[in-house]
Amino acid sequence: MNEVEPSIVSTPAGARALPGGLFTRATAELLASLVARELKSRYKGSVFGFLWALLVPLFMAFIYVMFLRLLVGRGVSVEGIIVGVFAWQYTVQCVQGGMTSITSNSNLVRKVFFPRILLPVAVTGANLVNFLLSLIVQFAVLAVLGASGGLGIGGALWALPAVVLWLTVFNLGLALLLAGANVHFRDTQHLVGVLLSAWFFVSPVMYDLSLVEPFAEGRPWLMPLVWLNPMTGLLTAARACVLPDVELPWTLWSTAGLLIPALLLGAGVAVFRRAQRHFADLL
């Protein structure tokens, strides 16, 4: 026994592992294993396997483009929709996977001590890997569209990592909040399903802000509200990174909206830590 022995100290404030707490090598290895499990199990047994991670957002984008062309006509760029749908899918998967990350592992949570926070973090991590791979497809599609007379790729590409990071911060915050909430209130799942579809329509996923701006005339409260939805800033930023002629306006309200992910992550961690004390009792 040359190293300091690990201990688990359990008090009404929760169980803690000492020394090192959360940031140890063992935790990193466990996180890597959980991410790998998440990715492996998702596509095992399916014919296309990992390709689904790329095909799903592509199909979604295709469907949206077709319908929008039918309903709205011209006005929204195909490229804009593709970028929007890919990023939106990332958030949706984190919300859905994160929400059930504790309840679907109830066996584990009730029987073995390990940092529970790793479960929603692993879901987010696995979806991040998926998202990064889907970005390759996204660029390929944009390039093909560009070669056939589309917008092509351009914009503040250098800022893309920052946008991905910020989107991940937002998604992780949501996953943490919902993971804890779903253990304590099982109707979270149903509520979130409804809210997600409402959120889809109020976020500029299959439209961009040029479509909203006409409505804002004479309604000074509308644009601040739109910008306070963090998804507005994130999607616009994602488009500004890869598409020419899209800009993220830095106004008071867009900045406020883009601060929300950080606040949400902070709240998510705090809420999760409180909620996890009762996981074993409620599962």
Binding site: E5, S7, T11, P12, F113
Partner: peptide
């Protein structure tokens, strides 16, 4: 450490392995 106590405190020194349910996970 899977159940949070309502009061009191418990310390377990060393690496714990529970055979509470084999194959959990």
């Amino acid at each position: 450490g899977t159940i949070t106590p309502t009061c009191g405190r418990v310390t377990a020194r060393g690496r714990i392995c529970s055979l509470l349910e084999l194959g959990a996970g």
